Amino acid sequence: MLSFFRWHPHEFRTPLNILSGFAQVVTAEAERIFDEFVQLNEYYDGTGIGLTVARSLARRLGGDVVLDTTYNAGARFVFTLPW
């Protein structure tokens, strides 16, 4: 589910918040979840490379994908690209 676009003219980036069906991710796992083949919950299908690929592509374009650790109603990933 896409939540909204928000523009910060001083940063020249457009963050896109992506709400996920994932359960809340603890802060200690916020970076590890982007490693290849990492799955924090073995009950979900998948290979554990989706977030790795998303972050890699965003960084090649000068942006990033991060986990919003302040959000506590599930998992929210913030995808930013430069203008």
Rank of each mutant, 00 (worst) to 15 (best):
D68Q: 01
A54W: 06
T69V: 09
T80S: 12
L19S: 15
R32W: 02
G74A: 12
E36H: 10
R13G: 10
L61Q: 04
R6E: 11
A54Y: 05
E11H: 14
D64K: 06
G74D: 06
V38T: 10
L40K: 03
F5M: 06
G46N: 11
P82E: 00
A73C: 14
T27D: 12
P9D: 05
L61W: 09
P82C: 00
A54G: 10
Y43M: 12
E29L: 02
F37M: 10
T80Q: 13
L2D: 14
D68V: 03
F12K: 13
D35L: 09
R6D: 07
V25F: 11
F77N: 08
R76F: 14
D64I: 08
V38L: 00
L19V: 10
T69A: 10
A58E: 08
G21K: 15
F34P: 03
N17A: 04
S3V: 09
G74R: 06
N41L: 02
L81T: 00
E36M: 02
G50S: 02
A75C: 06
A23I: 15
F5D: 00
I33C: 03
V38A: 04
D45G: 12
A58V: 00
Q24R: 09
Q24Y: 08
R6I: 06
A54E: 08
L40M: 05
A28M: 00
Y71Q: 14
E42Y: 02
V78Y: 14
Q24M: 08
Y43P: 06
V66D: 15
T14N: 05
D64Y: 04
T47V: 00
D68T: 03
Y44D: 07
G46I: 06
G50Q: 00
A73N: 15
R32M: 05
R59L: 06
V25E: 11
A54I: 07
A30I: 05
W7S: 07
R76Q: 15
W7K: 05
G74E: 13
P15F: 11
L81R: 07
T70C: 09
P9S: 01
I33Q: 01
V38H: 04
L51N: 04
G62Q: 01
Y44C: 02
R13M: 07
S20W: 09
L51D: 02
R76A: 12
S56P: 05
Y71A: 14
W83A: 12
L40E: 02
V53L: 14
D64G: 05
L16H: 11
Y43K: 15
I18C: 08
G50D: 03
R60F: 07
L16E: 12
V78A: 11
F5N: 03
D68N: 04
Q39V: 07
F77I: 04
P9N: 07
G63Q: 03
T70Q: 08
G50M: 00
A30M: 05
V78S: 15
F77H: 04
G63N: 03
F79M: 13
A58P: 01
R55F: 14
M1D: 15
L67F: 06
D45V: 13
F12H: 14
E42A: 09
V65G: 11
R55I: 09
F5E: 06
G50V: 00
T27G: 09
S3E: 14
T70W: 05
G50P: 00
T70S: 10
E11S: 11
F37G: 09
G74S: 05
T80M: 05
